[in-house]
Design a protein around this nucleic acid. Sequence first.
DNA 1: TTCCAGGGGTAGA
DNA 2: TCTACCCATGGA
Length: 302
Amino acid sequence: MFSAHSTLSTPHDFDFWRTVYSHGWCALPPFWVDKVRGALSRLLLLEDGSLASCTLSDGKGRLSVQIQSTAKLDKVRKDEIKRQLVECLRLGEDLSAFYAAAKRHPRYRWIPASGAGRLLRAPTVFEDAVKMICTTNCSWSLTEIMVANLIASVGKKFADGLRAFPTPEATAGLSDSFVRKHVRAGYRSPYIIELAERVASGKLDIESWRRSALPTDELFRLVRSVKGIGDYAAGNLLKLLGRYDYLGLDSWVRARFYELHKNGRRVADKTIERHYSRFGKWRGLFFWMEMTRRWADQKFPF
DNA sequence: TTCCAGGGGTAGA
DNA sequence: TCTACCCATGGA
């Protein structure tokens, strides 16, 4: 095992814990939060097949990164590790227009003031897409079970029982019956396998989505064409691609909207969409920020 | 036992 | 475009 230390510089409007706890992803392996050390950890799979366990903690204007790796940590590997972490924490994403818009609304000034807005994502679109499928029509606890089981089934081994997120190639090699029996993904199993097969075969260049020049509605239709990804999953996956034009409604946020705006009374989805339409291309992010505002009032890490 | 979770696909109107 | 029906799983 090889060890190294590195640092990541962060944008002036970045807040580490608000990014870590921006949604549930930090609780899904191979991310995990070490509350004792006050750190976010992540096991990365590098291009050469080596593995790197990274522990990130907040510093002054930069992040401290402790790395343990199966391969010597030369400059090439350290640079790749940094690139992957920058992707995860959205350190290269310019949210200044979003913050400027939020400052124009007194109700939302807390967002730029607190550094909220960056949504944690995986190093790869494939991982985000599989996980998003695993959030559909089930409880969050079942999502955690499915993701953990998938990793335990075909994730590359590191140490201490840790495994990387499976590659499309490894996932594509699983049978439907195996995924049903061991991942417990139920009817989602063929969707996960089909997605993995399309990505592994090169028929679907899913990793290009983050740098796509397509208009958002066209990208939405492309994402939506993946079996198992509907309006909810596509809307939320788009947020992880840096597009915030869709709300991605589910039972959890609907209940939260009813509670915040309608005294608990149910309303149609169109009413929710109309409510946020004034925020234009940022509406999905304004929406998510408002739904999760109470998280921002808590002391991190919680 | 029944219901429902951070829904989605499909067939038929 | 809209609606009914079906789909695995686990927790309450």
